[in-house]
Amino acid sequence: MKMELVWIIIGMALATGIPRFLPVAVLSRFEFPEVVKEWLSYVPPAVLAALVAVSILAPQGIVEITLANRYIWVFIPTLAVAVYTKSPFYTLVAGIALMALLNNLFV
């Protein structure tokens, strides 16, 4: 194994580990004020909404709001399944099956 690569990997492990580890390690001893707790409770919906938007509307790393973007076409029925069933399983099956269909119909 190349030594330089091992050092790069260790550096990457620190660069990715510290931002995950530190907040809980440092902040757990404090009781947050109510307003901070409320603020933090809005983080998951905001992050998830942003992740949905990016993964559907910029699937290749650039914003692509066009009719040719098949992620948008699969998203619409998948969203309907999610809203009606509230089931991760059915939503995942519907989304994957529809995307497989489109990917095989229009290569």
Binding site: L48, V52, S55, I96
Partner: peptide
């Protein structure tokens, strides 16, 4: 694996989680 539609696994999961969190 795109032929299996797995490239939509993440977007589908984000979608249902978003619905559940709202």
């Amino acid at each position: 694996t795109d032929q299996l539609g797995l490239n939509f696994a993440l977007p589908a999961m984000y979608t249902i989680l978003l619905i559940l969190v709202i």
